[in-house]
């Protein structure tokens, strides 16, 4: 035992052991179990194997398509809102925004919303988007002469509320990610572009974007994941998993409804498997195309 502690051959296994154990017990085992459960019909006390019946049921489940559509729509909209805008803001902060102190203040302020829990953010935005004419959003549209809106009762306006929460919480985080990427670009590249007479837009497109590709890939990956797996924002905004006509129902919301609320664990697991497949189907080709896996394996 004592000799083992001194051997550089054995030591790495001791170091990674706690990780392997937690990985096996709390991630791999539930993951396998999740696949197994998705082929079972589980009622307390009795488990029957039903093959792919859960997935067949899923294909004919109208509500599942509602959830799938909502999650997809949310993911796509958050990609459009939370990548170009934070990137632009990061470029502006990085280039011309006054002194370091001013930059630091903006970075911090933009980040502060990410410090709040979904619970508190949900409570606050729920009350901001309240249908009462005295609530903030209705006061704002009222200033333009628009009648009070029942924000959380309609599909489009409810969706707007969701996107507002997402933009509020994540814009600052993505700005930080992009800034990290921008700061790693050597200044010489821009000087060379200057010598070639490139304008600001050309510099952005031909120097900045290719150079921060790794950061872009990272942010796209976590945004796809975060968008498709969104649940709590909706849960908090509508004060539970039930929104009018399911306008806020997401894939994970449906998993939660089937698994926790209706205790149909087999069917809920099938929903989870489909979610994993969609996330991987979008992210893996993206990661391979951008060469991310190769570098990680190095």
């Amino acid at each position: 035992m004592r000799r083992m502690l001194y051997s550089p051959k054995v030591a790495p296994y001791i170091f990674v052991l706690p990780f392997v154990l937690t990985l096996a017990i709390f991630w791999v085992s539930p993951l396998i179990k999740s696949f197994i459960m998705s082929t079972q019909d589980i009622i307390p006390g009795s488990v029957t194997n039903v093959g792919l019946a859960n997935f067949e049921r899923l294909i004919g489940d109208r509500l599942f398509y509602v959830a799938l559509g909502n999650s997809m729509k949310y993911m796509i909209f958050t990609l459009f809102l939370l990548i170009p805008i934070p990137l632009l803001l990061a470029v502006l902060i990085n280039s011309k925004l006054g002194s370091d102190r001013i930059k630091a203040v903006f970075k911090s302020v933009m980040f502060i919303p990410a410090l709040t829990s979904v619970v508190v953010a949900g409570i606050v935005f729920r009350l901001i988007f309240s249908e009462s004419p005295t609530a903030l959003m209705n006061q704002i549209v009222g200033a333009f002469g628009i009648e009070p809106v029942k924000w959380l009762k309609n599909s489009e306006t409810g969706f707007m509320a969701l996107l507002t929460v997402a933009s509020w919480r994540w814009t600052g985080v993505n700005i930080l990610y992009f800034l990290a990427g921008l700061q790693a670009i050597p200044n010489d590249y821009y000087e060379a572009a200057d010598l070639d007479g490139a304008n600001a837009w050309q510099k952005f497109w031909h120097v900045t974007v290719p150079q921060i590709k790794p950061t872009l890939v990272f942010v796209v990956t976590i945004s796809v994941y975060g968008g498709l797996a969104m649940f709590l924002e909706s849960f908090m905004l509508w004060g539970g998993n039930n929104s009018p006509q399911n306008i806020g129902l997401t894939i994970v919301g449906y998993l939660y409804r089937q698994g926790i609320e209706k205790n149909d664990l087999g069917y809920a697991s099938a929903v989870g498997v489909v979610l994993l497949i969609i996330v991987l189907a979008i992210n893996i080709p993206q990661l391979i195309a951008t060469g991310t896996f190769k570098k990680e394996e190095r």
Binding site: W27, L31, K33, M37, A229, V252, L265, G272, L275, L276
Partner: peptide
């Protein structure tokens, strides 16, 4: 891997 997928098992 979405944690939400693992939460039931």
């Amino acid at each position: 891997v979405p944690f939400e997928m693992l939460m039931l098992p």
